[in-house]
Simulated assay, not measured.
Amino acid sequence: MYTRISKTGGRQYPQLVESFRNDSGKVRTRVVANLGRLDQITPAQLDPLINGLNRAVGRAENIVFAT
């Protein structure tokens, strides 16, 4: 799985995407989750998402530094 930024109508949307092979062996992609509009996501909303993904793959949590 990976993330990508989709652009539609002048707006940007982060997506969680996975690659797979169909029955004929061709590589395809499918969107697993749309994560909202990029311009409306705040760090307070993004940090829990990053931490959850890190936990899912067995990595340490994201460290947030105060600015």
Rank of each mutant, 00 (worst) to 15 (best):
P48S: 10
V57D: 08
K26W: 09
K7I: 11
R28P: 13
S6V: 14
T8F: 12
N34K: 11
L46Q: 06
G10W: 11
V31F: 00
L16H: 03
Q45M: 11
N54L: 15
Q45N: 11
T42E: 01
G36D: 05
G9H: 15
I41G: 03
D47L: 14
P43Y: 02
N54M: 14
L46E: 05
G10D: 09
P14I: 02
K26R: 15
G58H: 05
R4T: 06
D39W: 13
I63Q: 13
V57R: 12
A33E: 01
G58F: 02
R4Q: 10
A44K: 14
Q15G: 05
G25K: 02
V64N: 04
N51E: 03
L53K: 07
L49P: 00
T3E: 05
D39N: 14
R37P: 08
N51Y: 05
L35K: 01
K26S: 11
P48M: 09
V57Q: 09
Q45K: 10
G10H: 12
T67C: 05
A60D: 08
S24T: 14
R21T: 03
D39Q: 13
G36N: 00
A66Q: 10
D23A: 15
G52W: 03
G36L: 07
G25C: 02
E61Q: 13
S19D: 04
T67Y: 08
N22L: 04
Y13G: 13
K7P: 06
P14R: 00
L38S: 08
V64Q: 11
V32N: 05
G25V: 03
I5K: 08
G36V: 04
A56S: 11
G9P: 12
G25L: 01
R21F: 00
E18L: 05
Q45Y: 06
V64G: 03
L38W: 07
Y13C: 14
A66I: 09
Y13V: 15
R11Y: 15
A56K: 07
V64C: 07
L46M: 12
G9I: 13
F20N: 10
G58K: 04
L49C: 02
Y13P: 13
F20P: 07
N51W: 01
D39E: 15
R59K: 12
R59C: 06
P14F: 01
T67E: 10
V32A: 06
A56N: 07
T29F: 15
I50G: 02
F65A: 13
F65G: 12
M1G: 07
R37D: 13
